[in-house]
Write a protein that binds this DNA or RNA. Structure first.
Length: 336
DNA sequence: TTTAGGG
DNA sequence: CCCTAAA
């Protein structure tokens, strides 16, 4: 994975693999373990043999992972409003497929096939330009990757589960989510939610963060079984993965508490869900969780036991540190 | 429009 | 998560 796919246009292989050091993680966490990167190693042969293939569609991501400086043609090429639009473009499509057992939903989506395209023609320019220049010139932070995902990229097999994943179409997830959604076919909250994808700039951060600590337990996400439709209380609930929490904490460390929109825009650009408000809520919960840890041991144990995600120690530690640094209104006391 | 606070 | 008030 050292050379991987070089920049498409210029074949700049002179860039050293060490160039992926993300400026984001510079301050808070020193223990950076690349996690996602490991998932793309399988594609190497393809890259060498079928060069045209990756150009066609779904192989650009790994490349971009490697080269964040490689903002070559991809950024513009995929901005094409026609086929572009990263994740949320497939919302209706995806949901219809997954929920096809629900006749109503299916008909609904199919009906609105055409108009949806039209709507997609909005101009991303303003924000896009802003972000683009911002990243490029600013500090050259860690976010240089322009994902520009296409329709279906079924690459990136991070866990063996995904291998037997029927894939094909539902692999439009950003990158951190949807690890094992194979068994369930109910998935009520594919990603619909109330429309709020906002401007999805096609940059994604892909920081080689940890995710190494608890091995997998973060990939759980929607591991819930086959929830009967009757019993689903909350329409949509997305489990926070460790990766997400890590990103959130890191983002807070970088931009400060309260800058939810910034954090969302810089670190959660790929997540159509997770609004800034969600981030804030999660942070609130994190504060509580981290404080809980220091309460009674018994309580803590029970919590840990009950919790699906152990919430790594490192994260808790960081949360607490951050909590000390910037006082978050009202949550600091952890009273009542 | 975003953030803070409460439900 | 959702909603609302305030900035």
């Amino acid at each position: 994975m050292d050379y991987g796919p070089p920049c498409w246009g210029s074949l700049t292989r002179n860039v050293s693999p060490a160039s992926q050091s993300p400026g984001l993680s510079g301050s808070s966490n020193s223990a950076v373990g690349m996690s996602e990167s490991s998932s793309v190693t399988i594609q190497e042969s393809d890259f060498k043999n079928d060069y045209s293939l990756l150009k066609s569609e779904n192989h650009e991501l790994p490349a971009l992972k490697y080269r964040r400086r490689c903002e070559k043609p991809v950024s513009l090429e995929f901005r094409n409003p026609n086929l572009s639009d990263e994740d949320d473009d497939e919302d209706p499509l995806l949901s219809s497929m997954l929920l096809n057992k629900n006749g109503r939903k299916l008909g609904d989506t199919s009906k609105s096939g055409a108009p949806r395209r039209e709507k997609r023609l909005r101009k991303p320019t303003q924000r896009y330009i802003e972000e683009f220049s911002d990243k490029k010139s600013k500090h050259l932070k860690g976010q240089g990757k322009f994902s520009a995902v296409t329709k279906n990229r079924q690459l990136k097999i991070r866990s063996p589960d995904e291998l037997h994943l029927v894939t094909g179409t539902l692999s439009s997830v950003p990158e951190e989510e949807l690890p094992s959604e194979t068994t369930i076919q109910v998935v009520p909250e594919v990603r619909a939610r109330r429309g709020r994808p906002k401007k999805q700039v096609s940059v994604l951060v892909t920081k080689p963060k940890e995710e190494v600590f608890t091995s997998d337990s973060d990939d759980d996400r929607v591991k819930k079984k086959k929830r009967s439709e009757k019993h689903d209380r909350r329409k949509h609930q997305r489990m926070w993965t460790i990766t997400e929490v890590t990103k959130l904490v890191d983002g807070i460390a970088e931009y400060g508490v309260g800058r939810w929109t910034d954090i969302k825009r810089f670190l959660f650009t790929t997540s159509v869900y997770r609004t800034p408000i969600d981030l804030r809520d999660k942070w609130r919960n994190l504060l509580r969780a981290s404080s809980v840890q220091k309460l009674k041991k018994k309580e803590a144990e029970e919590k840990q036991l009950h919790a699906l995600r152990p919430l790594p120690k490192s994260l808790i530690r960081r949360v607490r540190e951050l909590a000390k640094i910037h006082p978050y209104p009202r949550e600091r006391g952890q009273k009542s």
